[in-house]
Structure formats: C-alpha cells, structure tokens
Amino acid sequence: MKDHPVRNSIYNVYFSPTKATQKIAYEVADAIAADRDLTSIAINLTKPKSRPVRAGGQENDVFLFAFPVYSGRVPAVLIDCIDQFEGDGAKAVVVGVYGNRHYDDALLEAADLLGERGFKVIAAGAFIGEHSMAPRVGAGRPDADDLAVAAQFGHDVAALIEQGATETPAIKGNRPYRDGMPDTGARPATTDACTKCGICVKLCPMGIIDADDPAQVADGCLQCNACVKGCPQDAKRFEGEQAAAIVAMLEGNCLERKEPELFL
C-alpha cells in the first residue's frame, strides 16, 4: 500500500472505469485547488493494483471522493478502500455520477462512510454520466453544461471552506440503504471479432479478463462496460434476456434529461 502524506492539499480520489466520473472529479478538484491555493493530489482507484491505498488528510486539507453509482449505492469494491482512509478532521466532498436513473442512497452512504473515518463532509453532488448498460440513456454526459456546473460546485465548496464550514448538509437518501447490486454472474460475451489486443484486459477494474484469452472472464464483473466501450473491434458486449430487459427498462423510463443535484 502507498502513503500520501502531503499536507495543505486537495486529494482528488476517484474510481472511474469509463472516465465519466474522472471528468467531473477533476473539474471540482481543480476549482477548489485554484481558489484555496492547494496542491492537487490525484489518487486513481480504478485499476486493481491501485487498491487499497492509504489516503486521508489533516485539518487544512480537502478530500474529494468521486465514484460511479451502481444500483443506487457506492460500488462495493470501494468499501475496503474507504476503510483505509483517515480523515483526522479534513473536510470532504462527495461526488457520485449516475446513469440518468437515480442516485438513490449512494451520496448519503458515502458521506456516512467518510464521517466514520474522521472526515467532515461539507458538500455532496450527484452528476450524470452516460449509462454503462444503455448508451442512449444519458448519452454524451457529462457534457459541457455538466462540466460547468461541476466547476462552479468546486468554487462554491471553496467558498464554504473559506467561511469555516464544518457541518454536513442534508443529503438525499435513506437509511437503511437500498439493496446493492445483486451478484447475477453476468459478464460480457466476446465475439469472433476479438484480436486479443489486450485493451480490455488493461481496462477491467476488477482484473478478471484473462490476458491470454480475453474471451474468458472470471467472476466478479461490475458490469461497468469499460471493456465494451474500450474495445476497438466492438467485440465485447452484454447479451441475453437479462441485459436486454435492463436496457429496455432504462430506455423506457430514463431518457428524459436529469440535471445535477448539489448539497451545500
């Protein structure tokens, strides 16, 4: 595990298999860093070898925790990571990126988990990204308007810090949290178009795609679709009745544009 002991910094900590969360995280973190004259430290939790990592802060540091929302919850793969975080009074900001359905209890859950680790959560934001399973849902998100909102959110957070804010705002969500994503054993299929280039192997945040035979995918798939979106041959896809039903539900109910929700 790696230590990141730099003080007077903003820690931009994110998990982002398809880059949508990363885009939002950098907009928010860069705005806070500029306004507060902080050193920005990026900690990317996406790749398996980057987890877990000890990270945290001191009283004058800011800790941004950004993640994609999976089934209305914080991705289960990040819970062990959060257990390694140490707040020590640092102010924290929660950012969740969801696929235009709903973020449900994810922001509240993240705020609770960080609070338990000694952080003072002073703000949270729910942003929209293209849905991993249904590209028509949230297509092209985050877009320029989303990124502008994210940057302004960062400036507003910096202003809160200047004012000495320490209280957690009223964040939408419920306790107990909704059930998380069930383990259905779903995993992407691989077509004959696969050239074994290895791109999907490198992109998989769980490290479960076989390097010698990328058609072999072990248990533990998050259905993040990083391999699907990143394959230059379009050789990876989710197939079958279950995947089709999920896409149909999302396209039937979630095409109307949603806007970011901010809690300050």
Rank of each mutant, 00 (worst) to 15 (best):
F263N: 04
E86T: 10
P205G: 08
M1T: 13
G252D: 09
C231N: 02
T166M: 12
D145R: 15
A29N: 03
A42R: 15
M249A: 13
E259M: 11
Y26P: 06
A245V: 08
Y103R: 01
L255D: 00
G207D: 07
G220I: 03
A193G: 09
Y14C: 10
D210V: 07
N8F: 08
P48C: 06
Y177G: 07
P182K: 07
V217M: 01
R117H: 14
I161T: 07
F65N: 01
A31I: 08
P48W: 05
V6I: 13
G129E: 02
F85M: 04
A193Q: 12
I209V: 09
G198Y: 08
A42T: 12
M133T: 12
C227N: 04
I128T: 05
Q163H: 12
I246G: 00
A25V: 06
V247I: 15
A33Y: 03
M249W: 13
E86A: 11
L160W: 05
M133D: 12
V93Q: 03
P48I: 07
A189C: 09
P17S: 08
I24N: 00
D83K: 15
P75A: 03
D213K: 12
Y14N: 10
R73Y: 05
R51Q: 07
A186F: 12
V28L: 15
L147Y: 06
F263K: 05
T195R: 11
N12C: 13
V77R: 14
K258N: 04
M181S: 11
